[in-house]
């Protein structure tokens, strides 16, 4: 697949910021995977490696002072793209009191109420109505914001998805539904379990326009999201983006991903969203290879520091057990 990066339309600062955020997610996730291997992180840990352009490109089109993000349990990338502190995130993965959810949420439940990162949700498709409800609040209060609701190809067959799109349409809610089609719902390729191959068409059943987007091209993601956000902001209408992407790692850390071939994985690695964008930026003279290496090193240091912070942080005390059950 040949890709066009519309580099010339953007400022150097903006482009570098996109690249840096993607690298940070990659290095953060590698660190998380490594620490999981060392049993510093337990339970389910779903890495975002390969999908970085989706969160980074789309969240760059939001203004989080008025817009909102809700996503799935594969949420580290979105949290970082929303500007959450890598230290606080890693501490949450470690289950420490310094984590964003005080060690009670873990990898799947990252939240930042101030920055409108509304989770981090563990049940497939269950947060789609929540996101729709946040959009109802925006409409009811006459606020300018837009909701970005992320979910995977596995969630698209849940009733909650279909129920939500229907309500978003009848009430004209300012929300962008984003299906990150990484092609596998856990270990099952979507083509084996879906009567529809092109998910973007599913929005049309509810009168919601849909578009298929190349999730390996961060600028394409940004541009399509920008347009969807504009429609929501200016006309108060919903839209649906199917962003085609690929995860390099298993569904979670415990998944060896034997359901796909080495060739398939290698083919996608050739379309790595970070390397493609880096090459384009070098080609356009925005950065040099050395600049890239410096950025990469910086992100490795941030990730290492995050792990160190998490390591040094305290466990939550047993006295916190009954805290925050009720308001």
């Amino acid at each position: 697949m040949s890709r066009v990066f519309t580099i010339e339309k953007y400022s150097r600062e903006f482009l570098i910021d996109l690249l840096k955020k993607m690298i940070l997610i990659r290095r953060f996730e590698e660190k998380a995977g490594q620490m999981y291997g060392l049993q510093k992180i337990g339970g389910f840990c779903h890495l975002y490696i390969g999908q970085e352009a989706v969160a980074v490109g789309s969240i760059a089109a939001l203004d989080l002072s008025e817009d909102y993000v809700l996503t799935t349990y594969r949420d580290h990338g979105h949290a970082l793209a929303c500007g959450m502190d890598p230290k606080v995130l890693m501490a949450e993965l470690y289950g420490k009191i310094t984590g964003c959810s005080k060690g009670k949420g873990g990898s799947m439940h990252l939240f930042d109420v101030e920055n409108h990162m509304y989770g981090g949700h563990g049940i497939v498709g269950s947060h789609i109505p929540l996101a729709t409800g946040v959009a109802l609040k925006l409409k009811y209060k006459g606020e300018a914001g837009v909701v970005a609701c992320y979910f995977g190809d596995g969630a698209i067959h849940q009733g909650s998805f279909h129920e939500s799109l229907n309500m978003a349409k009848i009430w004209d809610l300012p929300i962008v539904y984003i299906c990150e089609n990484n092609q596998y719902g856990m270990g099952t390729n979507y083509e084996r379990i879906s009567s529809v191959r092109d998910f973007y068409k599913m929005g049309r059943s509810y009168g919601i326009p849909g578009k298929q987007v190349d999730g390996m091209n961060v600028l394409e993601v940004y541009e399509e999201m920008l347009q969807a956000v504009r429609i929501a902001r200016e006309s108060g209408l919903s839209s649906f983006l199917e962003i085609k992407t690929y995860r390099y790692r298993g569904h979670s850390m415990s998944d060896p991903a034997k359901y796909r071939t080495r060739e398939e994985l290698d083919e996608y690695r050739q379309q790595d969203p970070i390397l493609l964008f880096k090459d384009a930026l070098i080609e356009y003279g925005i950065i040099s290879e050395d600049d890239y290496k410096a950025m990469d090193n910086e992100c490795k240091v941030i990730s290492n520091n995050a792990a160190e912070f998490a390591e040094m942080s305290e466990e939550p005390g047993l006295e916190t057990l009954y805290e925050d059950v009720l308001a």
Binding site: P129, L130, T132, V134, A135, L136, Y140, S160, S164
Partner: peptide, 17 residues
Amino acid sequence: TEEGFTGVGIGAAMAGL
């Protein structure tokens, strides 16, 4: 759509309604 509108209510509550 009980699941849907119940969830919509919860989301709206999270956001301040």
